[in-house]
Design a protein around this nucleic acid. Structure first.
Lengths: 354, 354
DNA sequence: CTGAAAGCGCTTACAG
DNA sequence: CTGAAAGCGCTTACAG
């Protein structure tokens, strides 16, 4: 179809060749006005013949709107966010919106820069899992007319919709699950300080422990596998017989640590993780988890966002989703006191790659 | 800093407030010309005071270039592509480029539409793992001046750079590995018909089998977990004692199938997978794999792309990366003839979700 | 139903 | 070192 040419064709060339004005070509291509059928066909024939591709950058400027949404996550490699991005992309694609991927690495500076990009590009909206919930750029983005939905973690600006998970409840239930099986020394492998989901999960854990009259025992793993490994080794060294792990990446590290310590789950240690990664039933033992309904959450977020983009003007919504227990093999053998001999080495010398 | 206002500020307002022309504001903000220091400071002060954010859509149009690259993958949820996207995003970010995420689901129509979007948005470049390698849109994109790098799978247009993996070699070595351990009935869980990586891997497998004088035995799993499960059940039903699985998602299904069939790896069946997913050492048993150096490949692809965007005009490069054996527990117990009693049920009645 | 003209908000030769 | 003016490629009131 297309005549190859170095210089991109403009609407004017198409118009001349078709013997009409640029306005008419635009109307045909966008369906924004009724055009005589014969004219329409002639225009389409020329468009096809020349392989004309309208320059959308120009259109965006003129129309004063960009059919693009930013998706801001802290780590695209975390399956939790991968699933979210995937579900959002699906919905956005169907509605004609493109996805601009913004990976912040939990770095507030990077989040600021990326939000600046979204403002500069005048995107129509954004789904944000914030690293810094009160960054002024979030408000700036909204001031510029973008629709914003907070995902997983709320943002300070009250004009944003929010799709959250009941983090505290999940950690509380996970802890109760272990306590109910007779564990007294239940450790908590915590997430990244200052992140809402980490704080929520830790508080649920602490609530359950104190309700049971037990002493909390937490170590921070930073939401990453290697951190989870080290935190787990520390907690095992302190005699933990049950572990609540605050996310799926750290669960990888926790399982490795259990093995490194020469222990077996659930015989020696019971493990419950929050988040249900795709590989949960493949591990040895299969991992008991509290699963977030990520897809439903992502669909809700995309729905809220696209709803606003299509003109809904309701006041901001806040939807909270419950976790769901997926009982597998890593839990819960009842606790057996002092079944272990020696101390556990509390940090690995092995140079592992996660 | 920013005075909140419904209507976005334009460069003209900033110029008026600073008592200079728009041209000068532009020069200060872009550093494109020397501006008197006092003027510069005045402009920056006003920009800061008003919270001015240049409209990059307008800039893109005027400058005739968009600092954005498209990343076209078939499935962002496949860890293989997730890692690639992540590595590309890192590099692109550092060079000031944004990433537009395009998920094709191995659907040629979706790939065409997304490539059309990339052309219309006049992106500077694209990294493409093509579903349809000879789609005319790839050439159109290049005609429009975009730099294109093919990833994993080549594209027909010879002007694109390519970063590939030695698929055939990997499958051949995996097969030889099993044959070397004494397996005669080595089955192959194949990928999606028509996809280059699937064909390459299957041909490597067939080469190794015929070199060993053995009869090939393949079943197609479509590169997805559930397909891998069904294909594996079929091959086990045909008496396979060794399995080469053509990608990581199908490996999930294969392990599940082995378990469903009441067998154990490596005692009853040896399994080698191509692709090394993050959870390979967590499975029961840990999965022996041939790993692609995804990060190195992604870095190479991003390097080639950004190199061209920065003006390199060398002829198209084609880099092929070798796989690397990661020996773990799922292989290779030597084959023991007819160690199994009855037939294996050849398709599961359990209604699993992958 | 169609065209001429203005304008989206920048950047950049050009002139001084 | 700085400004006035043109122009990037569209879309859309406006007029007919």
């Amino acid at each position: 179809m297309s005549l190859v040419s170095r210089q991109a064709l403009r609407i004017r060339e198409v118009a001349e060749r078709a013997g009409v004005s640029p306005a008419t070509v635009s109307r045909v291509l966008n369906g924004t006005a009724v055009v005589r059928e014969a004219t329409r066909e002639k225009v389409l024939a020329v468009v096809d013949e020349l392989g004309y591709r309208p320059n959308r950058v120009a259109g965006n400027l003129r129309r004063q709107q960009v059919q693009m949404i930013g998706v801001v996550v802290s780590d695209i490699e975390n399956p939790h966010f991968t699933q979210m991005v995937r579900a959002v992309e699906d919905t956005a694609y169907l509605k004609g919106y493109r996805v601009l991927l913004c990976n912040t690495d939990e770095d507030p500076a990077k989040q600021r820069e990326y939000l600046g990009v979204l403002i500069a590009e005048r995107v129509a909206g954004a789904i944000i899992s914030p690293t810094e919930p009160d960054a002024p750029e979030v408000s700036e983005l909204i001031d510029h007319g973008a629709a914003v939905v907070a995902f997983d973690r709320a943002v300070a600006d009250r004009r944003a919709d929010a799709v959250l998970a009941a983090n505290s409840d999940a950690a509380r239930m996970a802890t109760e699950h272990l306590v109910g099986a007779g564990h007294k020394k239940v450790g908590f492998v915590g997430g990244l300080a200052g992140i809402e989901t980490a704080a929520g999960r830790q508080s649920g854990y602490e609530k359950a422990m104190s309700a049971a009259g037990l002493v909390p025992m937490a170590a921070q793993g930073g939401f990453r596998a290697e951190g989870g490994r080290l935190a787990t080794l520390e907690l095992l060294g302190r005699g933990a017989s049950g572990l609540v792990v605050a996310n799926n990446l750290m669960a990888v590290g926790a399982l490795v640590a259990v093995r490194e310590a020469g222990l077996r789950a659930p015989a020696d240690v019971s493990v419950v993780a929050i988040d249900d990664p795709p590989w949960a039933e493949l591990t040895d033992p299969p991992l008991t988890t509290f699963a977030q309904p990520v897809r439903a959450m992502a669909a809700a977020a995309a729905g809220l966002l696209l709803g606003r983009l299509e003109g809904r003007r309701a006041r901001p919504k806040r939807q909270v989703f419950a976790f769901e227990l997926r009982h597998r093999g890593s839990c819960c053998r009842p606790a057996v006191p002092s079944r272990r001999g020696g101390a556990v080495r509390s940090n690995g010398s092995r140079n592992r790659k996660e």
